[in-house]
């Protein structure tokens, strides 16, 4: 293949060529800006994928709502608008704090970044706790998807009214859509925790804030999906 001397010579040249590279720069990128652009574009494409994935559920929602608007209207009145609105505010606020975390990391304020990331994570926890109460309440009322639906039975009457059996479709969609969104909240929390860990280890700097930026980008997607779910499910039904 190659003689010992040339191997060593080329190795030396190689090490020299990469000598000035900062530690976070991977070997196949030329500059930190190059690496940052690639990472950001990757996250944007992934967001496109996610939107198409939710797209299937939105299509199903549109189809079944178009077929039975009255039943969807009746069913949506059983959702708790107050809790839904509270969660919307919490998520919108968390998007702001995520953006502030990006800002602080860009100016090299590690403590500020940590603070805003922790607040974002706390907002996510609040969202999930509220969601937990909503779900248990639905379970209790027999508002369950598909064949598990019970709210049409007299025993589950709400203020003396029962829902028609076909309302189960609304709750099938409700649980699938908010469930998938909830999974995304969990994944987003995982990503932000990872970013937080790296920030605490001192790996984030003014020169390298890519993880904060793409983590926040993902978090905005989680927020954005909810911005559509809330009116569709809670408000217009």
């Amino acid at each position: 293949m190659s003689s010992a001397t040339t191997t060593e010579a080329s190795h030396g040249a190689h090490a020299e060529a990469h000598g000035h590279h900062p530690p976070f720069l991977q070997h196949h990128f030329d500059t930190p800006a190059h690496q940052f652009d690639a990472a950001k574009m990757g996250m944007w494409i992934f967001i496109c994928t996610e939107i198409l994935m939710f797209g299937g559920l939105f299509v199903a929602y549109g189809l079944f709502r178009g077929r039975e608007p009255e039943i969807f209207h009746l069913a949506h009145e059983r959702l708790d608008k107050i809790m839904g609105a509270a969660n919307t505010i919490v998520l919108l606020f968390s998007s702001l704090t995520a953006a502030l975390a990006v800002r602080q990391s860009q100016v090299g304020d590690r403590k500020g970044t940590t603070r805003w990331l922790i607040i974002t994570l706390l907002c996510a926890c609040v969202f999930l706790v509220v969601k937990y109460f909503e779900y248990t309440h639905k379970f209790h009322d027999g508002l369950l998807p598909g064949t598990h639906f019970r709210a049409h039975l007299p025993a589950y009457a709400h203020h003396g009214h029962t829902l028609p059996y076909r309302a189960h479709m609304f709750f099938a969609l409700y649980f699938m859509m908010t469930g998938l969104h909830g999974v995304h909240v969990l994944v987003g929390m995982g990503i932000l925790t990872w970013v937080l860990k790296r920030n605490l280890r001192g790996e984030i700097s003014k020169e390298y804030f890519t993880p904060v930026e793409i983590g926040a980008l993902y978090w905005h997607l989680v927020d954005l999906v909810w911005i559509y779910l809330f009116p569709l499910l809670y408000l217009v039904g």
Partner: peptide, 9 residues
């Protein structure tokens, strides 16, 4: 989910 929960979609 259709199989597990009887979703019905």
């Amino acid at each position: 989910m259709e199989k597990v929960l009887g979703l019905g979609i």
